[in-house]
Design a protein around this nucleic acid. Sequence first.
DNA 1: GCGGACTGCTTACCT
DNA 2: ACAGGTAAGCAGTCCGCG
Length: 839
Amino acid sequence: MIYNIKYKCNIKLNIIIFHIFIFLVYFGVSMNALIDINYDSEDKCIYLYLLNRILKDTNFKPYFYVDATIKEINDFLNSDEDKKNLLNYIKDLETVKRIIINSNLNDLKNRIIERNFTKITVKYPKDVPKLRVLKELGEVYEHDIPFTKRYLIDNDIVPTTYYYDFEDETRTIANNNLPELKTISFDMEVYCEGREPDPEKNPILMTSFCSKDLKKVITYKPFEHEYVELVKDEKELIKRTIDILKDYDIIYTYNGDNFDFPYLKRRAEHFGIDVFFDRTADKETEIGTKTKTQKHKQKIKISRGGIHLRSYIPGKVHIDLYPIARRTLNLTKYKLEDVSYELFGVHKLEVGHQNISNLWNNMDKNLVEYSFQDAYYTYKIGEYFLPLEVMFSRIVNQTLFEVSRMGSSQMVEYLLLKHSFKNNFLAPNKPSNREYQKRLREYYEGGYVKEPIKGMHENIVSMDFRALYPSIIISYNISPDTIDCKCCEDTSEKILGHWFCKKRTGLIPMVLRNLIERRKIIKKILKEKSSGEEINNKDKENKNNENEYYKLLNYEQKSLKILANSHYGYMAYPRARWYSKECAEIITHLGRTYIQKTIEEAEKNGFKVIYSDTDGLYAVLNKNTDKKTLLNKTYEFLNKINEKLPKDMELEFEGYYKRGIFITKKRYALIDENDKITIKGLEFVRRDWSNIAKKTQKAVLETLLKEGDIEKAKTIIRNTITDLRNGKIDKKDLIIYTQLTKDINEYKTTAPHVEVAKKILKKGGRLNIGDVIGYIIVSGNKSISERATLPEDAKDYDTSYYIDNQILPPVLRIMESLGISKDELRNIDKQITLDGFFF
DNA sequence: GCGGACTGCTTACCT
DNA sequence: ACAGGTAAGCAGTCCGCG
């Protein structure tokens, strides 16, 4: 009820805010949101890129901390002539009180200590590394936080969020809306002859764009296609491309980080064109003084970030959707075509890279259509992923550009850095390489997995702990800054010999509680909404605004969940600043204790627990229990358990299933009342099995789960084998996909996908770590690896390999779990041999 | 010398 | 470039048999 009132207020408030907004716009003051931030080393200042304005800040200076007194620092720097030079870089030395975490658990001093450090403020970001020699005096802290990220943390600016008046110091957030960003997708076709295109030689043929109100393909050959804009030559094409992109805030690409932008830049340089993306309408304002200055130059920067490139344009948000798709979706492969099929169920036009030069030479307008479709789907995928990325950007407090390139551990780290700053902590340093190596060798036990009772079960219920690890962290206040605190040594219960502070909430539990509480509120609002959906009868426009509002809440809720679930893994991540193996170990230990206790209790209450993994379990009651009794007993049991659990922990009802087949740990299949089948771990869900093997397994499972008909299952297997023998199987269904997880030279063993990778390289192709390789096993008597062949080169396929190594093992494992003897199964194949004989 | 058992490396899944 | 737990395939080696 309370939330219902709140939600109604929100809607009213939104309307009021909207009117205020109109009022402010009218009188020349408008809400604004930050979309990017950049430090310009020529102008020596921070540029804040707002929606339609650039602000300049020359006041904020880089700084870091040293564990030494000002006098010690001065003496040190004056000790010889070389060091004296360093004094020039220092703008200010100041003694400040900060809280530091003592991470040495053998040291029985207090876990956290508040004491003096020297804050060293320098003139320019590049001066910080020069002054790192001060570590000879004492530990240096927060010296490696990038300046622009530091700016956002210290000034508490939430990117991609509307403020009433951005230039007002109090900076009040106006609403939850997505900023009105002008978004465009961009894609490029390049001339290539089978090999990887070379930017020194191969020209750009066309560039395509798609946005809300623009569909365009620029090229310099008169193709007949409605979207074509004809220019004189490649040089004009590049100029025009830059010109179009200038006026957008967000540029979506698919692999633009590593291909499109680096290539565009190289070609532009080749023609002597400057790759500047200044927006024509931009005005620059000095913070505080509000004086207009000269137009700013937004030049593209291609930098190296680990093994990958990053293509950054100051003031714009380049979102490369490829890495986002890789980590957000679980697919067999990740070409643009695969991702658009997954998200929209449509097959886009494909031409294959090797054919591009042909289509170009023949002036085939399919090339234009293909190119445009690339841009079109890139745009659609971009719009699909954007809201979630915006939410991450707001919660983590970093720009869209950065956040869209971060893994979850990095997001957690920036979230913690922000709260660490707010609470006057000094952030722990990243581990040295030596420390990293040491951490890599530290092992600890994870979740508990119960050996399943193999075979078919009926009337199954599943229950699981809601956010097990996060709730344990909060309940026990587990954090590197609360473990083994001096103040609670005598009063706390010991877990694996450790204990946690009872007087002060730790950094990680604090952050987690924030995330979880916010998510609870959102979930409640969304629940109220869906239950009140029919009753509400408002006019259309209001309804649309409302839906938008709820959609965003749903994205926020999702991002909160992802971030909350990443904290446990973060603490065990060897490169983490707030690394604590002890904390991680205790979390999993408590997790094991809780699930094992729950299993025990379930058994005591008449349940038979079929299977359990980490935070949940599947159970059945006696054979003849009907569904209603089962569910009643389950809820009764849940109540009983939840009464005993800490208040932040909860065992939840997950689902009811008619039937389930359990094969081994982590491998099982279930069917619910609506005949919806869930398959876990089996070959069907793995990419490194041929489609024919997966399809057969799925069909067998379906028959067994729906009808329990073993004979019918055998027939399916028999038919597939016959089809294989008769060569009736589509080539596509024979391809096996395997990911390349390291450099080709680092493999210690021969493996099919590695051998195929070598063949690709020989043909002049290029491969990256992470690429997925598809291959078919062709006939012959050499090893499987030697017979693994690129699908386009495969002339036939090895029937017996596909029968014995692909079709049979996955289905036979299922049949065996049902207690069918090996002898009986052998007959399946024999009968076919006979069939073949008689034909 | 032969063939199954075992081992190490590798991948992709589950939570 | 978030964790550990797990099954399973392929290549290569071991090992018992005779």
